[in-house]
Write a protein that binds this DNA or RNA. Structure first.
Length: 342
DNA sequence: AGTCCACAGGAACTCAGGGTAG
DNA sequence: CTACCCTGAGTTCCTGTGGACT
């Protein structure tokens, strides 16, 4: 059934990227100066989730590493490392400059200094989900250092520009910008087809089923591959020699549920309590949420903190908010594409 | 039109936890 | 061991917005 599980995993970077030639070439050309030992411009990659932003960024930097000897690359997911400290630490860790840095008692500035003094190899830093960064000034820190080339990945351009200050906006506006659109069903089909050829035995899944997945994923390649993976592993576990339509139907549900569960697991008990209220009573306004929350937990947090929770969960696509001011309502976000980032 | 109220989210602050230097 | 430092979560305070009510 499953020949090579790696190609079905979420972070897998394929040897060839389907349907993204223009974007790959564009991004490569931005990093081009590095092949001559010169500093490269900052690149911004935007597009909805599952359009291959992370994939092409890693693909292009991998290829750069094959071409050029003295270049390092590092990948930071800013959603998981959302504070300035953690992001900086992660970068330093990757370039091997954290030996004597201790987690709690080192000031931010010390980390920036450390980066400044880093005169080793030129380094391409991929900042994924950069719009999740709580303090975007980090981009500025890196931007001013010539030995680092930055690839900023964000879902929406506005989310990125809306939160940084003016001087950085003007600099970023002049950066090279790679925009990615949602895949069409045919393109998703091609991606799935390539993956199943490498990852699965022959005749495990039909073309028609691949199109069903493409349809269910609505342009989101990550979700599509997730559905394929889930379906394949279910079929494998249950000793089928091919993927049935029933398995496929369930897999589409499961794949979405898994993505949601991942976000859910990152919530604190208090945040979870707020989420449960929205789930059980939504759509619901902020005051009712807080009233119910007060009933429900010991040692409740303040309204302001609950608002922070709600906005965080909105970012994670766990809940959605509708309306402004008085008629603001929160409800669970279900159905369409779920992803950790907005 | 003016007032009121609920709400969003920024800024500054406090506090606890984990760490260091001496 | 003690005095001190840093971070990060949460709180307090505050400003801006927009609908509802008079």
């Amino acid at each position: 059934m499953i020949r090579d599980a790696r190609v079905l995993r979420a972070g897998f970077v394929p040897r060839e990227v389907e349907h993204r030639d223009a974007e790959v070439n564009h991004l490569s050309s931005v990093l081009e100066p590095i092949t001559n030992g010169e500093p490269a411009d900052t690149a911004i990659v935007t597009g909805p989730s599952g359009t291959g932003k992370t994939c092409i960024s890693q693909f292009v930097t991998e290829r750069l590493r094959e071409e050029v000897l003295d270049v390092e690359t590092t990948y930071v997911n800013c959603w998981r490392n959302y504070t300035r400290f953690r992001t900086l630490y992660q970068i330093l860790d990757d370039i091997g400059a954290t030996i004597d840095i201790h987690r709690q008692s080192t000031p931010h500035d010390e980390l920036v200094d450390r980066l400044q003094q880093h005169d080793g190899l030129r380094t391409v830093v991929i900042l994924d989900e950069v719009d999740q960064l709580e303090d975007p000034s980090l981009i500025y820190d890196l931007h001013s250092l010539p030995q680092f080339a930055i690839i900023c990945i964000a879902n929406k351009e506005e989310d990125l520009f809306g939160r940084v200050d003016d001087r950085l906006v003007s600099r970023l506006r002049s950066s090279e910008h790679v925009r990615m659109d949602k895949y069409r069903d045919k393109q998703i089909y091609d991606i799935l087809s390539a993956r199943s050829k490498w990852g699965l035995d022959e005749n495990v899944i039909t073309d028609d089923q691949l199109y069903q997945i493409a349809d269910a994923a609505a342009g989101d390649a990550r979700l599509a591959i997730g559905i394929l993976r889930t379906a394949a592993s279910t079929a494998d576990r249950e000793n089928h020699d091919r993927i049935t339509d029933e398995i496929l139907r369930d897999a589409a549900e499961d794949a979405r549920a898994q993505i949601r569960q991942k976000s859910l697991d990152s919530l604190t008990p208090h945040q979870r309590a707020v989420y449960d209220i929205v789930r059980d009573h939504g759509p619901v306004g902020p005051s009712e949420i807080h009233d119910r929350y007060l009933e429900k937990v010991d040692d409740p947090r303040t309204k302001r903190t609950v608002r922070t929770y709600l906005s965080k969960m909105t970012q994670y696509n766990l809940v959605k908010s509708e309306g402004t001011s008085r008629d603001r309502q929160y409800a669970l976000l279900t159905g369409t594409t779920q992803s950790p980032a907005k």
